[in-house]
């Protein structure tokens, strides 16, 4: 089967969810209730808005991740041809990883890998 038939899998997945949810929307009995549609917060009414600028402690992680994820993409082609090229590929990846490792150590030492 060709790669294009991935579309099929996509369609089947969408159909699976769509049909089941559609069925569930039509068949089961419904009861309208204001309290029921409240967001759950242990039975207490929510105070204030839910969507706020959320202070998460991993912005720096995200940046480091971005760098590393891009790097990983570069390593994949190398991995495939490593066996055939041999020594030169090894030296090159050593240099590559040296730089990458330096980056990681730098980030580590600078405290970017610490949750703030």
């Amino acid at each position: 089967m060709s790669n294009e038939s991935l579309v099929l899998f996509f369609i089947v997945a969408v159909a699976l969810v769509g049909l089941a949810v559609g069925f569930s929307m039509i068949i089961p009995p419904k009861s309208k209730n204001l309290v029921k549609s409240e967001p759950y917060e242990c039975g207490i009414e929510t105070k204030g808005t839910t969507w706020v600028q959320f202070n998460v402690g991993y912005y720096l992680f995200a940046i480091v991740y971005l760098v590393f994820d891009v790097e990983t993409v570069f390593i994949f082609p190398w991995a495939v041809v490593m066996k055939t090229i041999g020594m030169r590929a090894f030296v090159e990846i050593l240099i590559f990883f040296f730089i990458l490792g330096l980056g990681l150590i730098y980030a580590w030492k600078k405290g970017a890998l610490k949750w703030e």
Partner: peptide, 18 residues
Amino acid sequence: VIVELNENPEYIINMGPQ
């Protein structure tokens, strides 16, 4: 939303009773 945020800058969440 912005006004509400300024008035009530704390993000309050209830843990419990349930």
